[in-house]
């Protein structure tokens, strides 16, 4: 550790405090069932997609990122190749 780092090092406690405040604000709002919500969203989104295209379960990723002012829900679906898609749609008709 350099001399500069020694003097400029900020304690880690403020970081802990802020992380906890953000996390708990979300967990309280959702009644502690945060993990469940993501699982439910993933299941339902997958069901909607499966109604229209045959998609591999593993190709659907649901990610949640929470910050103080807003949260993002990221849904990443890897589509099958166009040819497969067209064939599948034709068979659906």
């Amino acid at each position: 550790m350099s001399l500069w780092q020694m003097f400029s090092r900020r304690g880690s406690a403020p970081v802990a405090r802020e992380r906890l405040q953000i996390l708990l604000a979300h967990e309280r709002a959702l009644g502690g069932g945060q993990g469940d919500l993501v699982a439910v969203l993933q299941e339902e989104i997958l069901a909607v997609i499966a109604r229209h295209i045959a998609v591999d379960r593993d190709k659907v990723q649901v990610k949640l990122d929470r910050s103080k002012d807003y949260s993002t829900l990221e849904i990443d679906i890897e589509m099958p190749p166009i040819a497969t898609l067209a064939a599948a749609r034709a068979s659906l008709r």
């Binding site: 304690g11 880690s12 802990a16």
Partner: peptide, 16 residues
């Protein structure tokens, strides 16, 4: 350690 900012202070925990 709390005084040095290395550990959550009593007030931090109470606030939360």
């Amino acid at each position: 350690r709390a005084a040095r900012g290395e550990m959550l202070k009593t007030e931090d925990v109470l606030d939360i």
